[in-house]
Amino acid sequence: MNSRRIEVPVRIYHEDTDAGGVVYHANYLRYMERARTDWLHERGLDHDRVASEYGVLFVVRSVEVKFQRPARLGDNLLAVAELAGVRHGLMLFRQSVVRGTQSLVRAQVMVACVTVKDFTAAVIPPALAHFLGVEG
Results as ranks from 00 to 15, higher is better:
3 S>F: 05
99 R>K: 15
36 R>D: 04
135 E>D: 14
59 V>A: 13
132 L>D: 00
80 V>S: 05
123 V>G: 10
12 I>F: 06
97 V>Q: 10
76 N>P: 02
130 H>Q: 15
131 F>C: 13
73 L>P: 04
89 G>W: 06
75 D>G: 09
43 R>A: 09
34 R>M: 13
56 V>T: 01
31 Y>S: 00
42 E>V: 02
77 L>G: 06
35 A>R: 02
100 G>M: 09
13 Y>D: 08
127 A>P: 09
118 D>Y: 06
23 V>E: 02
44 G>Y: 10
111 V>G: 05
55 G>D: 06
124 I>W: 01
122 A>E: 11
95 Q>I: 07
94 R>E: 15
97 V>Y: 07
84 A>F: 03
30 R>M: 13
36 R>N: 01
87 R>L: 08
1 M>C: 07
94 R>S: 12
136 G>C: 03
74 G>L: 12
86 V>D: 04
98 V>P: 04
134 V>Y: 00
54 Y>W: 12
115 T>E: 14
87 R>D: 14
130 H>L: 12
96 S>Q: 14
42 E>D: 15
37 T>I: 08
40 L>M: 14
66 K>Q: 15
71 A>Y: 01
21 G>F: 05
73 L>K: 08
65 V>N: 07
132 L>W: 02
77 L>P: 07
39 W>E: 02
35 A>L: 10
40 L>N: 02
40 L>H: 03
6 I>T: 03
50 V>L: 07
48 D>Y: 08
78 L>F: 11
127 A>D: 15
8 V>N: 06
92 L>E: 12
18 D>A: 04
55 G>A: 11
21 G>E: 04
86 V>S: 10
119 F>I: 08
61 R>H: 15
90 L>C: 04
73 L>C: 08
52 S>T: 14
60 V>H: 03
32 M>C: 12
55 G>C: 10
73 L>G: 07
107 A>T: 02
30 R>K: 15
75 D>Y: 10
37 T>G: 03
104 L>R: 09
43 R>P: 08
86 V>L: 05
77 L>W: 12
68 Q>C: 07
5 R>N: 04
4 R>I: 06
75 D>C: 05
109 V>L: 12
88 H>R: 13
81 A>D: 02
89 G>N: 06
82 E>W: 01
28 Y>N: 00
109 V>I: 15
60 V>Q: 05
73 L>I: 11
59 V>T: 07
96 S>Y: 05
118 D>V: 11
104 L>K: 04
3 S>R: 10
6 I>V: 14
62 S>R: 12
75 D>R: 09
32 M>R: 01
45 L>A: 04
34 R>P: 03
15 E>A: 11
79 A>W: 05
127 A>I: 06
96 S>L: 09
51 A>G: 07
106 R>Q: 15
31 Y>W: 10
36 R>E: 05
59 V>D: 04
66 K>Y: 02
126 P>D: 14
58 F>Q: 00
30 R>S: 13
22 V>A: 05
3 S>L: 11
8 V>L: 12
15 E>G: 14
121 A>M: 09
43 R>F: 12
12 I>T: 04
107 A>Y: 06
4 R>E: 14
61 R>E: 14
28 Y>R: 00
18 D>Q: 02
110 M>P: 00
